[in-house]
């Protein structure tokens, strides 16, 4: 219930109407959207019960490792009802053709694989918000100072998911495990996305805001 209430509101992509369509415009739009979502996601993290009681450096380490997983999971959930398209924002839905012209076809394909998995499971909003918090707590940062405290956060979120499934999905005792088993694909997809946007940063043709750059560099 707390996590549902903490879920950030929708963000619009607002592509610049003055720019001609191009791969640079698409990538600029996505990086700008991601930067604004990151601000909301950082505030969201503070509303996860237990997160703010971690030391500040561990809060930073978890976010530095999981920020792209959180962004991708939000895209995946938004895209559940939209066959073969990715809903980056209500006003920015991308199909394979658009992804290809933006040089994002590979990423588009792997995120769609994640979407198909959640669609086949009929992922619910309560499960989505809890899984996203678990992804943050379970982000395997190498710089955690208080390992026990982070483990405690993982345990309490895991407990929350188990409780939810026990009440709402008695018919499938393994559903919690099935949800957790989607995390490796989320991690792999996120790593590919970070790598891809790092190479885009290198060639320097796409403007990127400071927070997005800061988190991109945190993973190097």
């Amino acid at each position: 219930t707390l996590l549902l209430g903490a879920e950030p509101e929708k963000v619009c992509a607002m592509p610049d109407p003055a720019l001609p369509d191009s791969d640079i415009k698409a990538l600029t739009t996505l990086c700008d959207l991601a930067d604004r979502e990151l601000v909301l996601n950082i505030s969201w993290a503070k509303h996860i019960p237990g997160f703010s009681s971690l030391c500040l450096s561990d809060q930073m380490s978890l976010l530095q490792s999981a920020w792209m997983e959180i962004l991708i999971l939000r895209v995946a959930f938004r895209s559940l009802l939209c066959e073969d398209k990715l809903v980056f924002a209500e006003d920015y839905i991308m199909d394979a053709e658009q992804a290809k012209s933006a040089g994002l076809l590979e990423l588009h394909k792997v995120i769609l694989q994640l979407v198909r998995r959640y669609r086949s499971m009929r992922l619910e909003r309560e499960e989505f918000v809890t899984l996203k918090a678990i992804a943050l707590a379970n982000s395997d940062s190498m710089h955690i100072e208080d390992v026990e405290a982070v483990q405690g956060l993982q345990d309490s979120l895991h407990e929350a998911l188990l409780d939810y499934e026990c009440v709402h999905h008695r018919e499938d005792p393994r559903r919690t495990g099935k949800l957790i088993m989607t995390l490796p694909l989320l991690r792999q997809t996120s790593a590919k996305a970070v790598q891809h946007f790092c190479s885009i940063k290198q060639d320097g043709r796409v403007p990127m805001h400071k927070l997005f750059l800061e988190l991109l560099e945190a993973n190097v």
Partner: peptide, 15 residues
Amino acid sequence: KEKHKILHRLLQNSS
């Protein structure tokens, strides 16, 4: 920590 100024600031002031 210097390198991660914005994240540090956002975590501090949105609490």
